[in-house]
Design a binder for these strands. Structure first.
Lengths: 196, 196
DNA sequence: CGTTTTACAATGCGAATGCATTGTAATTCG
DNA sequence: CGAATTACAATGCATTCGCATTGTAAAACG
């Protein structure tokens, strides 16, 4: 067998270049040649590690999700249910350059999921877990008396999540400042967790 | 001068074909040839009425906005501030085939606005009016004693709007049913307008 | 040492793209 | 009636695309 190469590392290297292109210029700007140039490798190498463009896009999405997942897990280390929910929501919002980088990519895939059934299936599978996490925290808070027991944890979770998702574009195009985004999140959270 | 032709009618005819393509197959599927085929006209005719593809995309967006605007205006005919806000929100959500058709297109343009500055500028200009409409209704309701005066109308409006926007994709891919979408909207509205 | 296998690099290719160009029929105006 | 203008239709063209093919160097293995 030939040269010693870390296969997965190469794939990640290429995937990161791909993500940079999506974040900077959108999904439309992705071509094998562009990816090769951005990754500073040959086009043949890109083809060597990904048999089709679609596979590459899927791998890059999984790679991104892993990255975000790690960050969320780290942010979710600290504290109360409210802090956990807040941290989880803010990780999805473009409040700094790192999160904006990811939010742009996420929105691109999100839009494509409307016409790409494989992406839609992925989302449908993942969403229950994401929203479920928020719902669970709210139920915990209800058990602790931090949230009024009469509230519908599932609906509250859905509202929080969709609100955050809906703020992504307005924040990215500059209609909402990071401060306004954070203030709106906290405003809704204050209502849910009246103790503060 | 030659043949009598309703210039604007032709442009609308082509734009509607364009919107159908976007809604069915996404923005990527739009090509001059596809549009011509969908509109059942020659490609030369498409070029005759739109000097560039970009101009066509912009015109189609304006056409769509006009359509939605009309529907919103019609829906906003009836009633209380709460009914107005509710109607305005529901018009943006894919609760039936007509609105789903439009929501798919809206999401496609929304995603592109992240990397297309002209679209972003359009959105930045339009958003204050849309969100402002909700805020205004909430302030009216506050004056009427239907909404607690201590609430921040601007933030409430932002939350309602972003929540609705954030539900578009989950609804389109089937994660949220139309019933769940409507229930979540009413749930948040119930909190805002406690009288019911 | 030679064979096999992996890791690329380079090039080729048909299809599709946006746009430009050219041609033509029809209608109005002087 | 002739000239000009408009409304198309048809085709050409350079570019870009994803992917296939081919070639080559290097390393492990018998």
């Amino acid at each position: 067998m030939p040269k010693i190469v870390d296969h997965e590392a190469r794939r990640r290297h290429i995937a990161e270049a791909l993500l940079r292109i999506i974040s900077r210029d959108g999904l439309d700007a992705v071509s094998l040649r562009e990816v090769a140039a951005e990754a500073e490798v040959s086009m043949g190498m890109v083809q060597h590690y990904f048999s089709t463009k679609d596979e590459m896009l899927m791998f890059a999405l999984a790679h991104l999700n892993a990255r975000i997942g790690e960050r969320v897990a780290r942010a979710a280390a600290a504290g109360s249910p409210r802090a956990l929910v807040r941290a989880g929501l803010l990780e999805l919002l473009p409040l700094d350059e790192e999160r904006a980088f990811e939010a742009r990519i996420g929105l691109a895939y999100l839009a494509r999921s409307v016409v790409a059934e494989d992406l839609a299936a992925l989302l449908r599978a993942a969403l229950p877990y994401v929203v479920g996490f928020y719902a669970e925290q709210i139920r915990t808070a209800q058990a602790l008396g931090q949230v009024y027991a009469g509230l519908d944890a599932g609906k509250e979770a859905t509202i929080l999540f969709t609100m955050a998702q809906g703020m992504v574009n307005p924040a990215l195009i500059g209609h909402l400042t990071p401060e306004q985004v954070e203030a709106a999140v906290d405003y809704q959270l204050d209502r849910l967790f009246p103790s503060r």
